[in-house]
Computed example of a mutant assay.
Amino acid sequence: MIGLLTYRNVRFIAHVRHQPNHNRLSIWEHQMTRMMLTQTLLSILCTLPRVIFVIYSIATIGENTTRNFDQLSIIFTADYLSAFIVGINFASSFYIFLLSSPRFRRTIQIYLKHRFNLNHYQIDPTNTPIAVPTLSEHQC
């Protein structure tokens, strides 16, 4: 729902900024639309298995006492798997933005290069101690 509202707001902003000779959406608006629609679709796909499992659990709530160990193992596995898939939804935003936005990819590349000093043409000074011979009384 949030993704659809964001999509509507992006379209509204595009309509407000609409210029007479500017009929197409800007690159930013295309990226935002693509990211929000992808995020909304992924949210639905990640939430659907958990919803199905909860509906199944509610529908079979009276049968808990008659299940054997194998059936309970399958149910617990499905429970943990559906919870894991829902958890993927929370980490997916970064990857969706990374895959669908060239501007975001460039920003991440610049950040990583700066963070880990990956500029190949950069010369850094080194702090190497220089051994200086000292004159003793015997050498004088």
Rank of each mutant, 00 (worst) to 15 (best):
Tyr80Gly: 07
Phe90Ala: 06
Ser100Cys: 03
His15Leu: 08
Leu112Phe: 04
Leu72Thr: 02
Ile88Ser: 10
Pro49Arg: 10
Gln139Gly: 07
Glu137Arg: 15
Thr107Gly: 05
Pro49Leu: 01
Val51Arg: 12
Leu118Met: 08
Thr107Ser: 11
Arg8Asn: 03
Gln39Met: 12
Ser136His: 15
Leu72Gln: 06
Glu29His: 09
Thr65Cys: 08
His120Met: 10
Ile61His: 11
Ile88Pro: 03
Met35Ile: 14
Arg105His: 02
His138Tyr: 15
Tyr7Gln: 06
Phe97Ala: 14
Tyr95Pro: 02
Val86Ile: 07
Thr6Trp: 10
Ile27Ala: 13
Ala83Phe: 04
Lys113Gln: 06
Ile27Leu: 13
Ala78Cys: 13
Arg115Cys: 00
Leu98Val: 04
Phe76Leu: 08
Thr47Val: 03
Asn89Met: 09
Leu118Ala: 08
Phe97Leu: 13
Ile85Cys: 01
Gln19Ile: 02
Phe12Ile: 06
Asp79Cys: 01
Glu137Phe: 15
Arg17Thr: 10
Thr126Gln: 15
Ile88Leu: 04
Thr77Gln: 01
Ser43Lys: 04
Thr65Gly: 09
Arg24Lys: 09
Ile2Ser: 13
Phe84Val: 02
Leu112Asn: 02
Asn119Glu: 05
Phe69Met: 05
Gly87Phe: 00
Pro133Ile: 11
Asn117Ser: 10
Leu5Ser: 09
Asn9His: 11
Pro129Ile: 13
Ser26Trp: 07
Gln31Glu: 15
Thr128Lys: 12
His138Trp: 13
Leu135Asn: 14
Ile61Met: 15
Phe69Asn: 02
Pro133Ala: 15
Arg17Gly: 11
Ile96Lys: 07
Ile27Arg: 14
Asn21Ser: 11
Gly62His: 10
Phe90Gln: 14
Ile110Thr: 07
Thr38Ile: 14
Asn21Gln: 11
His30Asn: 14
Val10Pro: 00
Arg103Gln: 07
Ala131Val: 15
Arg67Phe: 04
Ala14Tyr: 14
Thr38Cys: 04
Ile88Glu: 00
Gly87Leu: 08
Arg34Trp: 05
Val86Ala: 05
